[in-house]
Design a binder for these strands. Structure first.
Length: 264
DNA sequence: ATGGCTGGATCGTCCAGA
């Protein structure tokens, strides 16, 4: 089973790229972020025509996440618990049946948090991460295959940026952000790409500005975290970098894993 | 890069992103 995550930066602006990529990559489950669309305007017909079930958690103008799946959904949950006043659409969970039991897949879009001296934005990022850790701790008690996939907006290590010193005053590279993601992973998750390689210079985001793509001036912030039960079925992980060279690209590329699981 | 691109909302120009 192939599971992919992709910050698509506007699903309506990117629908041609998305359809082409789905045909080429042929994932079973897709986690999308930054769909920048309300549910009613999500281009579901084009995606359903390719054999996918579509579940969205949209929002007007920005944010918004979605799950696409060739497997039927047993359950869908929208929104990260822990703060009833949080109206930003950044989290959707789907549950599926496999030959090994339940599979839970989350598409998450972690807050950017910039600028770091903003009274709202950076604290919101950190409190969102604390809520995510509490949620993950509860889910791990189920001892099920769980994949937490998405745009984490955190540069975990210096090797995850081409120019780490350029990010020292950025919310993505603050010690608190990195510590919070480290703490989440240390609950017992496996970060899929680092499970297969220690190499530097592998990125998932390149800014539109300053010729970042041409210079390979990127950062690696899109991750798939696997619970122990998912990690036991882990086969491979890869970044679909070539998608960044397409016409009208997202500034992020898809990151995917192969799990040794089958639909029930 | 105190951001020189892009998408979205809206219809001239601002917000948000990372």
């Amino acid at each position: 089973m192939k599971i992919a995550t992709w910050n698509i930066n506007g699903v309506r602006a990117r629908i041609e790229n998305l359809v082409h990529w789905l045909g080429e990559s042929d994932p079973d489950i897709v986690c999308l972020q930054e769909i920048k669309s309300v549910d009613e305007q999500f281009p579901r017909a084009e995606i359903e025509a390719l054999g996918y079930n579509v579940k969205t958690h949209g929002q007007k103008g920005f944010n918004g996440v979605a799950l696409l799946s060739k497997l039927p959904f047993d359950e869908v949950n929208r929104g990260l618990p822990g703060d009833d006043t949080d109206e930003q659409a950044r989290f959707i969970e789907g549950v599926f049946s496999t030959n090994e039991g339940a599979l839970r897949v989350v598409s998450l879009y972690l807050p950017n948090g910039n600028p770091i001296d903003d009274p709202i934005k950076f604290p919101y990022k950190l409190s969102w991460m604390a809520r995510l850790e509490r949620w993950a701790q509860e889910r791990l008690e189920l001892e099920e295959a769980l994949v937490l996939a998405g745009d984490y907006n955190v540069i975990l290590q210096p090797i995850d940026a081409r120019n780490p010193q350029a990010w020292v005053n950025d919310a993505l590279f603050q010690p608190q952000s990195r510590q919070a993601l480290r703490q989440l992973i240390n609950l017992g998750f496996t970060e899929a790409i680092r499970a297969v390689t220690d190499e530097a210079d592998i990125y998932s985001f390149w800014d539109y500005q300053g010729g970042a793509w041409q210079k390979n001036n990127g950062i690696r912030i899109d991750h798939l975290l696997l619970s122990p039960e998912a990690a036991n079925r882990f086969g491979s992980a890869f970044i679909e970098k070539h998608v960044r060279a397409w016409e009208k690209p997202s500034d992020h590329v898809p990151v995917a894993i192969q799990l040794d699981l089958k639909a029930a």
